[in-house]
Structures are given as C-alpha cells and as structure tokens.
C-alpha cells in the first residue's frame, strides 16, 4: 500500500477507519481506511463489485459495519441532525418512487430536513431539470434520473458530497458539466467523494485517489502518487489490481 496523500489539509471531513462489512459469509469491504479532505475531490476507484457501493452505504448510515467506523466531521452519519444539510449523496439507482414527479420527490425531501421549498426550484434549474420536473419519475431516462439524484444531493447545499458513479448514464455534455461542477464545488472548500469504475474520467476530476479491489484498499494518495511510474492511471490500476492475483 502506498502512503496516504493529502497531508496538511485542515480537518478531514470524511474518515473511514478499519471498515469491514460482510454480506452473508462474503467479505464485501475488508479493513478499509481512508480520509477525504475538504477542498479536494477524492476519487474512489475500483472495478465493479470491488466494494465501493458497500463502503458508501456504510458511510451513509444505510448499512451497519461489522467492524470499524465511518465518520463525517467526526460523527457517524446516523447522528447527524438534518443530515441532508451536511452530506449530499447519490447512490446507484436514484432512489425516487416512479409514480411521483421529480418536483414532488424533491419537495418531500426538502420538508424532511427543514430545507426551504424555494431551494427545490433552484436545484432543478441547476441540474437542468426544470422542464421535466412535473413529469413522473418513471418516465425519466437513466441520465435524467441521475440528474434528479444529483438535484437531491445538492438540495441541502451540503459541505460534503458523496456520489456513487455520478456520470453513469450521462451524455458527454453532462459528464463535462459534472466534472466542472465538482471541481468548482471542491474549490469552495467543500469535500467531494465520488466512486467510479472509469479511470480516465476519475483521473481528470479527482485530486486524490483511493483504489479498492476485492474489498481492500490497494492504493491511496494524490493522482500523481497513485499513477507513480506508470504511463497512465489505467496502467497503474491494472498493475495494482493484478498484483493481488485475482
């Protein structure tokens, strides 16, 4: 394992320590530790099934770990008051009921965390959904659904963003938009953690990387540190994951 990067940043906002999660007998997340710092975009990289989503689900308080801790600003997610105002999150699949409109989905979410209703229209405009916000979510395409998920994540104007495969289903323009958006978000001193299996895309967006394979962290550090002597992040990634002889 490589040395941790990102030293010298104030107050790590996301901190995972020795996190282990089993599904049945299978270890999905194995002793995972890393921090994601404010002012930086941290890419959480790994092949499908490496344990990225399982890790993020524990971080967001959805699943209970078998060992270890996951803290946001020093507190477990479940202890946050009005968590959407601290952590915005987007998980695989969107998480909106198909028979409601996008606007109705965002409205109940806003109400649940004491977020002003005017914010619903703001985020709809921000992600470019204002035109289709009155339509049922079940009529949305994958990309439109991702935009709605992103709007939900941004609803509470959070200091921390946790996004699971945010560019899935987005068109090239959407991908470019989200890359710029996340860079600007981190530049404001906020913390961005995004998971991906797309190496080129992540290398272009992230400052720091955590590479996970078969549930274990195989590398972490700044992008140049992880790429090391390899020609590209992709080469580094395959070197790192094949070392483990999967």
């Amino acid at each position: 394992m490589r040395a941790a990067g990102g030293d010298g940043h104030p107050g790590p906002v996301i901190e995972l320590n020795g996190l282990t999660k089993r599904h049945g007998g299978k270890v999905a997340v194995d002793d995972v530790s890393f921090t994601a710092s404010p002012g930086r975009v941290t890419g959480f990289l790994g092949p499908n099934g490496a344990g990225k989503s399982s890790t993020l689900r524990v971080l967001l308080g959805l699943d209970v770990p078998d060992a270890g801790t996951a803290l946001v600003g020093g507190r477990p997610y479940r202890k946050l008051r009005n968590p959407l105002r601290t952590v915005g999150s987007l998980l695989d699949g969107g998480g909106a009921h198909g028979s409601r409109s996008g606007r109705a989905h965002l409205t109940w979410l806003a109400v649940s965390n004491g977020i002003p209703r005017s914010r619903v229209e703001e985020v709809l405009d921000l992600v470019g959904l204002a035109d289709v916000a009155g339509r049922r979510v079940s009529t949305y395409s994958l990309g439109t659904g991702r935009r709605l998920g992103l709007a939900a994540a941004l609803l509470g104007d959070p200091e921390v963003l946790v996004l699971d495969e945010p560019v899935n289903g987005l068109d090239p323009e959407g991908i470019r938009w989200i890359r710029r958006f996340l860079r600007a978000y981190a530049a404001e001193g906020r913390t961005v953690l995004l998971s991906s299996h797309l190496m080129g895309e992540t290398a272009g967006t992230a400052d720091d990387l955590v590479v996970i394979d078969a549930g274990r962290v195989v590398a972490r550090g700044t992008v140049p540190e992880v790429v090391g002597g390899h020609a590209s992040l992709e080469d580094a990634f395959f070197a790192l994951t094949e070392e483990r002889g999967r």
């Binding site: 689900r57 959805l62 699949g93 909106a96 649940s112």
Partner: peptide, 18 residues
C-alpha cells in the same frame, strides 16, 4: 425502479434523509 433508471429503491433516500 425500472431497470433503465438503475433499479433503485426509495428507502435509501428516506433513510439518508431521516
């Protein structure tokens, strides 16, 4: 949700909110 939209369930949203 439909396969197209990634097959998510609202419970994840509800529990991250509350």
């Amino acid at each position: 949700g439909s396969k197209d939209s990634g097959g998510g369930r609202q419970i994840t949203t509800s529990l991250t909110a509350v």
